[in-house]
């Protein structure tokens, strides 16, 4: 399989090409990591880790997908690793109800996250939505964030997640349904 000129240059350790790649994908990687992690410092950390991984593993990149897909894949993988290690440490922070039903998780248990790219009028509502997103199963969360926060199409997401478009569609539908349920619980608890 033919390798793109950028990859070929990266393999030679060309610093200028690497700098251009970082500049080109910096916002996409950071925004994706931020959407998944909902934490600025952690997202920045993951962004750095992603590009270090790109730099180190470019020799092994087979070119069976686009550079963009490859970088998104690394981003999702690194962010999920962060979530896994973080949730192991922080599991006690999430208040699961006595009924043991994860769907009834208390949304206000976590500190609110404000995404810097949100319209001002949506700031408060989106903070609640982000809390609900953080309670979604990992696959649903990934698909939903890539679609709604990063604005990727379902076919792009399917390539990143290495699954079919219909699976991505199903993940997004299920995520939306679960979010509705979580928001409904939140609304009832807070008696708006």
């Amino acid at each position: 399989m033919e390798v793109s000129p950028i990859i070929a240059k990266l393999r030679t350790g060309d610093e200028q090409t690497f700098r251009e790649l970082v500049d080109q994908y910096r916002d996409r990687v950071f925004n994706t990591a931020l959407g998944l992690l909902q934490h600025h410092e952690n997202a920045e950390d993951v962004t750095q880790e992603v590009f270090i991984e790109v730099f180190r593993s470019v020799a092994g990149f087979r070119g069976d997908c686009s550079i963009s897909t490859w970088i998104y894949r690394i981003t999702v993988q690194k962010a999920l690793e962060h979530i896994r290690t973080g949730s192991r440490r922080k599991r006690s922070g999430i208040m699961i109800s006595l009924f043991g039903n994860e769907d009834r998780v208390n949304l206000s248990a976590n500190a609110p996250f404000y995404h810097p790219g949100i319209l001002l009028e949506n700031k408060e509502r989106s903070a609640i939505l982000f809390q609900a997103i953080s309670l979604l199963p990992v696959n649903q969360r990934t698909a939903f964030v890539l679609h709604k926060v990063e604005g990727l199409s379902q076919s792009e997401i399917s390539r990143i997640m290495d699954t079919s478009v219909s699976s991505v569609e199903s993940l997004i539908v299920r995520a939306r349904r679960k979010l509705q349920q979580l928001l409904s619980d939140y609304y009832e608890k807070n008696e708006r």
Binding site: R19, V22, D23, R26, D27, R28, V29, F30, N31, L34, E44, T47, Q48, F51, H115, P116, G117, I118, L119, N122, R125, S126, I128, L129, K148, V149, E150, G151, R176, L179, Q180, L183, S184, Y187, R192
Partner: peptide, 23 residues
Amino acid sequence: TWIDETLNSLDGIHRAPGPPDLF
């Protein structure tokens, strides 16, 4: 209405800019 508005609160979201000194 509130649930729908909350679910749609990500509409029009902009990409968060990455750190400028990243490289």
